[in-house]
Design a protein around this nucleic acid. Structure first.
Lengths: 215, 215
DNA sequence: AGACCGATAATTGGATCCAATCACTGAAAT
DNA sequence: ATTTCAGTGATTGGATCCAATTATCGGTCT
């Protein structure tokens, strides 16, 4: 199972995501195409196509003849994103419970352990990745591909800010406990409790993140 | 209020939408870039950027080195789209009621009349446009730009099929009545009734459209 | 001093050209 | 007869080049 050769625009897209996530490209900053194209070792054409994808996801904005800029999140945007996440994630986890098998439970328990392991190292990027894997393993069970895609986009738009969230030790403690509760509710196939814990999980997240944005 | 000169990719994007909506480009059909670029009188570069946007919206799919294809909706996709619409539109109209002014009511009443006028002519494209304007005028009141964008995309993916819906006279009759009910609930600021009528409005739509897809 | 205007540089948008990949045809081998 | 393979044509992906637009910087006028 070897990874097939990627096209340049796919590579560039992945690189752009990293740069935005890690803050190498900061919110509000203009993206000068020549600079990035050279940095990535490609021409501007595949770069522009990758940017168009990110524009569609709301990660960057585009003004004709002025260029691309890394998107900034206002506090209002943040709350809207989390409101939409609330609506859509409730749907996702509800549908997930209807489909979940014992095998799935094992997989997800494993992913929760991965988060715990990453949290103990304190590496923010690793935690972000593991956390995402855990949650989306659950969402995927919904078998609603469009819903999952929307959720990915919503998560992406706040990832920059959320990574700050994971740099606090107390926050890291809490999410582990919350993940355990989520796992518990999953095993019990208890939709109400599952939704409930997702909600509090998000609420804790949004209040921390909004503090970061309001700086 | 003059329209500023559009870039080629914006023009092409609009043209592509029309071709897809009207069925000049049929679901499943490959999009040969040279052909369309020549038809639109531009080079392939702006065309490809427009296609990237449509890909992000789920209107077309892309397979590396094989090209772009007009997206097809399975019956499962259709139900997922309508399920997502249900979730998001409930949110939109609920938020709308919180913001609505008397001036807004006048505007929307006017738009409802436009739908009636279009329906009397029987021109499917005109009805589609007027119907959309009516509904999105309501959604816009939510003042949730990301939500509105998502709804636009969801509507776009089914517009091809929905236009069939409007070609039936009985359907046209019914939507006018339902629009009146929606208007009524709006004027009364009655959220429950407003949501209810939106739901039935959608349900009627989805059952007709799924009949078309299952052909 | 500040606003307005024009030339110039920087940057994006678009066209053309070349390279890489894929689909298709047809012939050969089993 | 069916499968496999090679070669060819068609199509996409990407690089380079040119045009159009915008921003910047000086200078001029009030």
């Amino acid at each position: 199972m070897n990874t097939k050769p990627l096209t340049a625009q796919e590579e560039v897209l992945a690189l752009l995501r990293v740069e935005i996530l890690t803050g190498s490209l900061q919110p509000g900053q203009q993206i000068v195409q020549d600079v990035l194209a050279e940095r990535f070792g490609v021409s501007r054409v595949p770069l522009r196509e990758a940017l168009k994808i990110l524009e569609g996801e709301g990660q960057v904005t585009h003004h004709p003849h002025r260029g691309y800029f890394v998107a900034e999140l206002s506090i209002g945007d943040l709350h809207e994103v989390y409101r939409l996440r609330a609506l859509l994630e409730r749907e996702a986890v509800t549908a997930a419970v209807a489909n979940i098998t014992d095998r799935d439970l094992i997989t997800i328990t494993e992913l929760a352990k991965e988060v715990r392991k990453a949290a103990s190292t304190g590496e923010v990027l690793a935690i972000t990745a593991a956390n995402r894997a855990f949650h989306f393993a659950i969402f995927e069970l919904s078998e609603m591909p469009r819903l999952i895609r929307l959720l990915r986009q919503l998560w992406d738009t706040t990832d920059v800010y959320r990574s700050v969230y994971f740099s606090s030790a107390t926050n890291r403690e809490r999410i582990l406990l919350e993940h355990d509760e989520i796992l518990d509710a999953l095993c019990a196939r208890n939709v109400a409790r599952l939704v409930q814990w997702h909600d509090t999980h998000r609420d804790n997240s949004v209040s921390s993140v909004s503090a970061v944005i309001a700086r």
